[in-house]
Design a binder for these strands. Structure first.
Length: 621
RNA sequence: GGGCCCUUAGCUCAGAUGGAUAGAGCGUCGGACUACGAAUCCGAAGGCCACUGGUUCGAAUCCAGUAGGGCCCA
């Protein structure tokens, strides 16, 4: 498909041309002007407002309104096709302009013509980007917090795809650190138990039912072979088997919310392939590391208070979106150790971070930046979707990017805040202490995939989210996903009705479309036309929630228009064939935009929905 | 004690790179169906955009500080 301009782009193009023209005539200084073209809040101000005169005022040393008049003049001269039908200077120096309505109608035509591809743009220019999300430790099934990370990350990658980026969806598996070792030991305990022993479970062992299953499976496979064997003989095997099993569960959890990855990167493989070693050599070659000691803690209570020991993180996370990777501080290093430190403080981090422990083994952080180093070789832009508890981790990752000769903006981190699960407004008890974790799978099975996905995206990702199970199940307007899907179904009900009454779905005709003259109809057309812009903006800000709000607004506008038509008698299917075709075509555009917006979010767009049990309308009274 | 995020209507939240009179939903009150989905819509009431200063033509938005909440690290 040819790259056609969006309506707003056309305006930008015209303004730019006008500015060049005026500068050439000596009306104002030459050079780029950082102007904006916005749809004003108040529709009476026109289709778009341009602030170029105000921006230019400083440089030109002339009052904005005077400049605006000049720009208007230049715009008239540049607009040879007559696309701008009204231009006026307003307020402090805005140029309000109105477009030939046909331009909007043509945009509607394009929306329907593009069909399921409507909204795709090329702003990403095929840039390679890796979106890493979920990356939950393979020590248990996904909980609700992971779900929000997964859905948000998936929304981000989807947006980037729609915006023309070359996207790889990636999951980083922490299959090497202390936590999976703990899992391996926990499984071994269950293995012993399965073979008839009575064993005690230390507090830090993983409690889940799945641990028991893995233990039992290994008991069946190996019988007593590893019953009394030293840990060195079984730990790696048990760990790997457990990880494999848990990853299977995680894949299942992801499948339940329809998320797939293009690539699963393994921490263990980073070591085995020598990537970590190569990375450290690279650091040494660039003189980015040195041997030294950890800086003393900033605590006031007595210098040299020892860092906490290497206790493994608690097994099952509470509501944290992602389980924290064991930071360097949890790896049992003390202040007196001679460590290999990375000069991250020279690149904006607070302190230098250890990449090798006293015994020469790499730290978790080391593997992690090695991973980013390796990823950056495969892509131009890296996105990490992390739990908000990793906020402190971001500066050192960015420092690493810069130290390695990239831009710190080549890595963008999307932070995901906590999910507060409620049922009918009351908090569902969750917490690390109680061990009462709510698994993602339970939620999906209760409320469905669509509601789960949609509701996770009803907030900016860095704001905490209340997720109410009762609301998610409700088939009423309080439930936002239902509201949008219902609107889509209603549009299709109109199409069905048209078919029943022998009205064919129209193809585009400008003459027909010109009958869309009411303010509500023009507004709907404009919203449809702005959809590609909305998607591109959301993609570049990595904010999938914007799509949710867009859908919410456009469907509300539709419902309003529809109901108003019922009252006034100006129905979609009316007595005048031309108007009927025009309105049907508008509905086609609406249905397409809703379907595509929902598709971006991975939510279905049903054409028909079941009536609730109460409203048995068809029954004769 | 240090760092990051946050504070907008009674409640839950939107406000794209600063734009004109700050918007939704819920809740409250009052209305609208012999149906192409009332699972909807219309109207009313509801605001010191936490506070103070700064930047400029212009600030909910950017900067500094203060207060309060969350997370991470000590």
């Amino acid at each position: 498909m040819t790259t056609r301009l969006m309506v707003r782009d056309r305006v930008i193009e015209l303004v730019r041309a006008a500015l060049v023209r005026g500068a050439a005539e000596g009306k104002w200084p030459e050079g780029e002007v950082g102007f904006t073209v916005d749809a004003p809040r108040d529709p009476r101000h026109g289709d778009f407002a341009v602030n170029a005169a105000m921006v230019l005022a400083k440089r030109a040393g002339r009052p904005p309104r005077e400049l605006a008049a000049g720009i208007v003049e230049a715009l008239r001269a540049v607009d040879t096709a007559g696309e701008l039908v009204s231009l006026e200077v307003a307020g402090p120096g805005f140029i309000n302009l109105r477009l030939n309505p046909d331009l909007w109608l043509r945009a509607l035509e394009r929306a329907v013509a593009a069909g399921p591809a409507y909204g795709r743009t090329t702003v990403g220019q095929g840039r390679k980007v890796i979106v890493e999300y979920v990356s939950a430790n393979p020590t248990g099934p996904m909980h609700v917090g992971h779900g929000r990370n997964a859905v948000t990350g998936d929304g981000v990658q989807s947006l980037l795809r729609w915006a023309g980026y070359d996207v790889t969806r990636e999951y980083y598996v922490n299959d090497f650190g202390a936590q999976v070792q703990t899992l391996g030991r926990s499984v071994h305990l269950r293995y012993q138990e399965a073979l008839g022993r009575t064993v005690e479970f230390p507090a830090k062992a993983y409690p889940g039912e799945y641990v028991k299953e893995i233990g039992a499976a290994l008991a069946a496979e190996f019988a007593g072979t590893y019953l009394d064997a030293p840990e060195s003989e079984w730990l790696e095997l048990f760990r790997d088997r457990a990880v494999e099993h848990v990853l299977g569960m995680i894949r299942g959890d992801l499948g339940a919310i329809q998320i797939q990855f293009d690539r699963w990167s393994s921490e263990k493989a980073l070591y085995q392939s020598g990537t970590v070693e190569r990375f450290i050599k690279d650091l040494e070659a660039r003189d980015l590391v040195y041997v030294g000691q950890l800086p003393p803690p900033k605590s006031k209570k007595g210098a040299g208070s020892p860092p906490t020991g290497g206790a493994a993180a608690p097994p099952a996370g509470g509501t944290a979106p992602a389980q924290p990777p064991a930071g360097p501080d949890e790896e049992g290093m003390s202040a007196s150790d001679q460590l290999t430190l990375f000069r991250s403080s020279s690149f904006g981090d607070e302190v230098d971070r250890p990449v090798k422990k006293a015994d020469g083994t790499p730290t978790y952080f080391c593997a992690d930046i090695a991973y980013h180093w390796e990823k950056r070789q495969r892509a131009d832009l890296l996105i990490d979707v992390l739990g908000a508890d990793h906020g402190g981790y971001v500066p050192r990752l960015k420092a690493a990017m810069e130290a390695l000769g990239h831009s710190r903006d080549d890595l963008h981190v999307v932070l995901i805040q906590m999910v507060n699960l409620t049922r009918g407004g009351e908090a569902v008890k969750m917490g690390k202490r109680s061990g009462n974790v709510v698994w993602l799978r339970e939620v999906v099975e209760e409320v469905g995939c669509d509601a789960t996905r949609y509701l996770f995206l009803t907030r900016r990702s860095d704001a905490p989210l209340d997720f109410d199970l009762e609301l998610a199940k409700k088939q009423t307007l309080d439930n936002p996903v239902f509201y949008v899907q219902y609107g889509h179904a209603r549009l299709h009900a109109i199409f069905r009705k048209a078919a029943e009454t022998g009205v064919a779905l129209p193809s585009f005709s400008l003459d027909d479309a010109r009958r869309l003259t009411s303010p509500e109809e023009t507004e709907l057309v404009r919203r449809i036309a702005s959809f590609p812009d909305l998607l591109a903006g959301a993609a570049q800000a990595f904010e999938p929630h914007r799509v949710v709000f867009y859908l919410q607004e456009i469907i509300a506008a539709f419902h309003s228009w529809y109901t108003q038509g019922k009252r006034t008698g100006e129905r979609v299917l009316g007595s005048d064939p031309g108007t009927t075709r025009a309105r049907l075509f508008l509905c086609l555009g609406l249905a397409q935009v809703i379907a595509n917006g929902l598709a971006v979010l991975g939510v279905s767009a049903p054409q028909r929905m079941e009536l609730p049990e109460t409203g048995d309308i068809g029954a004769d009274a």
